[in-house]
């Protein structure tokens, strides 16, 4: 009974501290233009340095969707639906979620490690000593970059995935270029694309927030930093999937 009470208290403490961090971010986001240089640095880190990983995974994802759509439906569906299947899958689900998970693994962990190291080496305390707000200086640029970068990388992923599907279709599935691209445009609903981008914005916010939260909470040296990194990745991954469900329910109905 006591353990349950402690767990509940710990859960409330967790929700409360995350809520407080969100509140501090919202308060300090007005000063983003003052830290624009830092934000650009974060965009470069999160987007440009993740680009090759995004291109590679998305290309193969598109290929797999095309192959499996053809494998499952080739006997009773026209070839034109392969293009449609790849496009809809990339727009609605795989584009944003795949990028969310990749960035959760790459960026959230990186942010947690970076801020955790600063925390355990008392660099954040030093910033405060110099009257520099660590939320405005460290957290807001990262979260802002996440919100900007995720939709951009999602667009890259979607285009790359569709191109991957096309490459596989013409090389292995005996589907002509014209038929494939006609399928891409078939039954296109703008909500599919925008819904996916809304997802990616929420993912960008959530996974950078988790990286920052666990980084700022890190304590106890290198071990604490490692623990913070792991927790950041796990919580970001869970949040990405949870938000995927929530946004899907809200947008696609």
């Amino acid at each position: 009974m006591l353990t349950l009470k402690k767990k509940n208290l710990a859960a409330m403490e967790y929700i409360g501290s995350v809520g407080l961090l969100i509140w501090q971010v919202l308060i300090n986001i007005r000063g983003i233009y003052r830290k624009f240089d830092l934000s650009l640095g974060q965009i470069y880190f999160q987007a440009i340095e993740s680009l090759s990983l995004v291109l590679f995974t998305s290309l193969f994802t598109g290929m797999v969707i095309a192959f499996e759509a053809n494998y499952q439906a080739a006997n009773y569906m026209p070839d034109v639906y392969v293009g449609m299947a790849v496009t809809k899958a990339m727009f609605i689900e795989l584009g944003p979620v795949l990028i969310g998970l990749i960035i959760a693994g790459r960026v959230s962990s990186s942010i947690a490690a970076e801020l955790g190291s600063m925390k355990v080496t008392e660099q954040i305390d030093a910033l405060e000593a110099f009257a520099i707000n660590p939320i405005e200086h460290l957290v807001v640029p990262r979260i802002f970059a996440g919100i900007v970068v995720l939709p951009l990388l999602t667009i890259v992923s979607e285009i790359t995935g569709i191109v991957g599907g096309w490459i596989l279709s013409i090389s292995s599935l005996n589907i002509t270029t014209a038929v494939y691209w006609r399928g891409v445009r078939l039954n296109y609903i703008p909500t599919n694309l925008y819904g996916g981008l809304i997802k990616s914005i929420t993912f960008g916010f959530a996974l950078t927030l988790m990286g920052c939260y666990y980084g700022l909470k890190a304590e106890g040296g290198a071990e604490g930093v490692g623990e913070a990194t792991t927790k950041a990745v796990i919580s970001s991954t869970i949040l990405v999937l949870f938000l995927d469900l929530i946004v899907s329910r809200l947008v696609f109905r």
Partner: peptide, 16 residues
């Protein structure tokens, strides 16, 4: 941040 990185980010965002 150095100039080349800023330019790269600009090009990236514009192309996308």
């Amino acid at each position: 941040m150095n100039r080349s990185k800023t330019v790269k980010v600009g090009i990236f965002i514009t192309i996308i």
